[in-house]
Write a protein that binds this DNA or RNA. Sequence first.
DNA 1: GCGATCAGCT
DNA 2: CACAGCTGATCGC
Length: 740
Amino acid sequence: MSSKFNLSQFPYLDDEDDDFQIPLSQTPKQTLSSRIKPANNPRRPSKKPKKHNNPGKENIDPNSLLAHQKAESSADDFILDANCSLDFIESSIDCSVSSKVGNEKLDSERGIKEKLEVSGGYLCNSIEARLMKSRVDYCGVNVGNEEDFEENSELDVLIKLCAEEEESEVREENKVNCDGNEFRFVLCPLCGTDISDLSEEFRLVHTNACLDKEENSVPDAVLGGDDGRPAVVPRGLEGPVCSPKKVVVSPVVKWLRNLGLERYEEDFVREEIDWETLQCLTEEDLFGIGVTALGPRKKIVHALGELRKGSYRAVEVHGDAHASGEVGSRGSHGAEMQVEASKIIGDDTSKLTANKLITDYFPGSVPIKKKTCVISREQRGAEKSQPGYVHKQGVKKNTKKGKLRDIPSWCSIPGTPFRVDAFKYLRGDCSHWFLTHFHIDHYQGLTRSFCHGRIYCSLITAKLVNLKIGIPWDSLHVLPLNQKICIDGVDVTCLDANHCPGSIIILFEPPNGKAVLHTGDFRFSEKMVAMPVLQMSSIHTLILDTTYCNAQYDFPKQEAVIQFVIEAIQAEAFNPKTLFLIGSYTIGKERLFLEVARVLHKKVYVNMAKFRLLECLGFPEEDMRWITLNEQESHIHVVPMWTLASFKRLKHISSQYAGRFTLIVAFSPTGWTCGKGKKKSPGRRCQQGTIIRYEVPYSEHCSFTELKEFVKFVSPEKIIPSVNNDGPDSANDMVSLLLS
DNA sequence: GCGATCAGCT
DNA sequence: CACAGCTGATCGC
């Protein structure tokens, strides 16, 4: 009997009628780049057909791209798919041109170009980038297309400036080659090479390679540079007479042909495998590229082994020549990369390290880029405050090769080698990983196979990490509360974050004297005001949970909401056959149902999984006695939040309990209840037949008012928002709002 | 078969 | 809007 009514066995899922949908792309802590560019991991080629047209290159029909480039109406279609990123383009352009006062640098042509590069950095691998670039290009080439742009608009001015340099040359070529037909010249916006004869896809390949070249000084192997070296053009795509420039077979393609594997040429070109990358490919990479047949794959692996031995020797031999500037057309950076890459692989040529990623072999991908990056961490933080900011460095490489994502500034603690809630961005250059609390969006990426050093967290979080993920205790370092400890030369103090059980805010005091307070997710409480650490310390940087950083989110205190729920239960309980459901996360919202139980002297039912979790949370016995595993014993049940999201599911639950209960009253506790147009109230009642749902603004994040109070209390020199909404709620606006 | 990861969805 | 997270598909081992 009891098992029949076990809530955990309910078929809650019923997907036929979706009440509402939230695209994953809107989750707050994702970077803009990940929103518009689905990860394209060459090791795991996506086989599943996509429902929506993501604006990533793999989902764009190359045949439709030309239409996009030519017709404004098509561009509108595109905007529907990626309006947020286009917003950013527009806004960044606006910024660059309109902020003339007090910003001479941006006034200069160089300044504008730099600004374009910012959007180029963010957009360099996106369809938008190419469209924008192409639009710039067309503007220079086809006068008739200028009507697409508002005369004398800032955008227009910008585009003209950028196109000016190449314009005369372009016009000349255009005249020669356009013989009255509708033939339209397409030049690479970066190198100016005629790419009219390439398919759309290969135009993208070419332009991308140029972008790579600009960003990373990638060797010319795939570009066809001014030195006359070959461009990568697959067989059969060599241009006709009218494009005499640099159309030769690339070394990679030649090499494939020598192996008798020309059928994979296109795959290699599509994946932009240049000579350097080729030598770093693992068998997995090859599979991802499209060499799925075992025979050819082994053949390539073997040939690569030989190639590496040869190139390592060659590089060593060339070492001196390099120093004297005789490395040939490859360029010094390319040679360095080859040395490094070869050394890495040369250490163990026989073993193709299966777990290594292509990017791991590029020394430039992480440490070198850090060195060469002119933007300091602080500047990056400031830039991040710009709407739609995405790291300029390495965006393309990282996403293209599929693995290493840029670390958002809210994950790194300035002045320390520490990362916070950054398990999505695991890499070998860090061995101190802090976890503020056990919610999926903070520990995402943390798995049993974690091997990047030590995880620092509260005792409760450590228990959960051990229980739910299986991380051994050896890797876990429990941080005491309210007690300063020293980790790797940095003083670290943890305080209760008042978010969910085990959640902490962390104060880092590095040797440079610039204290950083990372709030994780938190809700400001009066107790924090009394904490000596916060009173004494002067905080330089505040990394702030800005989930509800908008004046519309001004919900009541938790106590008021709890009181509301208690009264609502009392009011609805006139019917003895009423089942009360209270939504809860894996951890979180415990205070609500425990307080309800305590005040009403009613036990609340949780399933076994939830009970095991509660046992980890360290609640006192007097609280735990209100919990029961026997659902017959209780008419107040704790259920996952998502089961309360739709009335359809609630109806399903209702039908399961048809004999025992005639009325369902559900409480959905979330701060989003206090959204637009909804007045500050402790709850909202919705009813459909015998199902009532209360949406109550019980939040475990700060309200807007509390955020402002907290910022005033801490009065930091700098704020880095950890939740970065786009558009009008940009990080920049957030900070302004908070300081106003 | 299991763990990891991702897209899609609520 | 999107808290936090469930489900199913896919892939590697």
